[in-house]
Each structure stands twice: as structure tokens, then as C-alpha cells.
Design a protein around this nucleic acid. Sequence first.
DNA 1: GCAATACATAAGCGAAGACTTATTCGGTTC
DNA 2: GAACCGAATAAGTCTTCGCTTATGTATTGC
Lengths: 104, 104
Amino acid sequence: MSDDDIFRALGDPTRRAIFEKLATGAMNASTLREGMAISQPAMSQHLAVLRNASLVRERRQGRYVNYEVDPDGLARIAGWLARYRAYWPARIDALRDLLKDMDQ
Amino acid sequence: MSDDDIFRALGDPTRRAIFEKLATGAMNASTLREGMAISQPAMSQHLAVLRNASLVRERRQGRYVNYEVDPDGLARIAGWLARYRAYWPARIDALRDLLKDMDQ
DNA sequence: GCAATACATAAGCGAAGACTTATTCGGTTC
DNA sequence: GAACCGAATAAGTCTTCGCTTATGTATTGC
């Protein structure tokens, strides 16, 4: 897990799509694959990259492997971003929403 | 400018180093190159990638080209990140600081 | 134990990426 | 306008990446 792993992992649109789908709820690799034009090995490889970047984590459940978003990766991005807050535009609505959530 | 351009641009450690250095203050390409083991064309190409991702912007000044951090790219990352706030750990100090800044 | 299922790994291939050297383009200075 | 300097572009090379097909590894159910 490093900034390098994280940004590199997110640099691929297919992987971002996988991550996005996972963000709607945990699911196993096969379910993830549904509706996506992607082979089983390709999915497995993408998940390995995402896992290596701490963007996703797995939990074996019988012969299925359940995948879910790993907050660690996201936190790391947030940390990276925070280093440059001096350059942020004065108002970013999405961010403000987020802050409100965290202030509760 | 797209999420793809941004994450792909930041996926390269050399480019992140360039961006980081630029974040300490605007400077031209030659000054940027000082202390970095990188050729002039390589720097120029990296800057082109960063510029294309809206992470950096340029302003011609005579025969020098001054580069500076472009808030647009950072804002876009923040936007992307905000979509997954449901997964953020309860407390991210750096982020909280940031929010406080924005709440003023 | 054996067939079936879910997933991972291996090996190889074509495309894209990061570098190099050489050259060109813009702009300043004399 | 000629020499010079900062930066961009061109073209080629080598590496990395994302895919494929084939095979291996767990786990379940009969």
C-alpha cells in the first residue's frame, strides 16, 4: 500500500468501475462481474491490484470471496489531498456536505 | 480533463514529485528541474500530462513558462472522494482540519 | 472420493507509457 | 538578423500494463 499503488490502481477506468460497483455494497467476484464485459481472470487481477492498494478487502466465505471497499485506501487519498488544501477553491460543495456529515 | 486523466497522471511517482514541488510555489520548468534527475524533454512531457489533467496550469512569461498548481484537478479528486464518504473512517484528522478551513 | 463451482495464478501477447537523442519553436539580446 | 536560451515536439526504444487462454487451488455436495 502506497500512494503509488493507490493512484496507479485508480488510473484504470475498469478498476474504477469495479470500485464504484463495490461501493454500492459488498459482493463476491462473480456477482461483481455481472453486467460487466470482463473475463473472470481479468476481474481477479483487477481485484488483486485494488486489494494491494488497500482500496478493497476480501473476506472468504466458503467458496465465495466477498469483496468490500476498504476505507484505508480512501483515507490515504484524503490525506494526500489534505496536503494541498492551500490550493483548494474556496467552496467545494461536495466537500462541504462531507464536512457537515463529519461534524455531527 | 477527466478522472481518468487525473488518476493516471498521479499514478507516476515522478509526476507526483513534480506536483509536490510545484505546490511549494509557482516556478518555471527549468527551476522545477533543479535537483531532480530528469531530462528537459521528460519534464516537458510530464508537465503536459499534468496540465492535461488540470492538475497544473501554465502562464507564459517571456521565454520562460511559469507553472503552478491548478485547483481544478484537486477539486475533481475531492469530488470523486466525496462520493464515497459513506466509507470513510469516522475520523480523519487531516480532513477535519480541511473542513474547518472551509467552514470559515 | 469425484464432479462441479468460485476464484487465483501462469505464461504469453499487443498496446500504452516513460524515457532517450535530435530537432524545432518562441522569445530575448546584442 | 544572428546567436542564444527556455521549452515543446518528433521519433525510436525499452518497460510496464491489461488482456487472453490454460491450468491450478479451495470448497461444496453428491
